[in-house]
Amino acid sequence: MASLMAMTALGRRDPATVTHGPLTISERTDVALASVAARKGRMANLSASARAAGLHLPGPATHSQGTPYSAFWVAPEMWFVEAPFASHELIADMLKAALGDAASITEQTDAWVAFDVAAPDLAPLLERLCNVDFPAVPQGHATRTVIEHLGVYLIKHGPGTARIYGPRSSAESLLHAVETAAHALW
């Protein structure tokens, strides 16, 4: 669409993949992100219009997988909605069209850097990084937490797969923190 060339949060043309021992860290630049917050007293309208759009807005601390829209809870009556970037670069506009005035919708795609981390067992890595009890929380658990002073969202997709959304401007520091912890382990 744009004539301008995109740069990843790590300052490259293409998303980075880093492997160390059993761990793979994959930067995801193909995810569009927007926040959806219910307008006051409009939760019922929002739920209905979201349902019609194929968007499930899950309960607290939960991620809900869907096509094209996935979503996770971030605050009372507020969610982050994910969709494929290629088809949904204009995710905020698309959601506004689908959800109407029952929600306040804000583009968040480039506010975050997304890293998918994968290993047979992520627990040893994450216990060096944040206070989330990763083995104990269920699949689909989504929470905000802190990694090396950075506020991040951590989504558990399985015992060995998780996504970390961190502040985009600190992408290098966040990757460095995960890599350092991995080197301390493996």
Binding site: A37, T106, E107, T109
Partner: peptide, 15 residues
């Protein structure tokens, strides 16, 4: 608490 206001930071979303 009864105001209809929603807030979100977009500092990093825009260059």
């Amino acid at each position: 608490p009864e105001m209809d206001v929603q807030l979100i930071s977009t500092t990093e979303a825009w260059a």
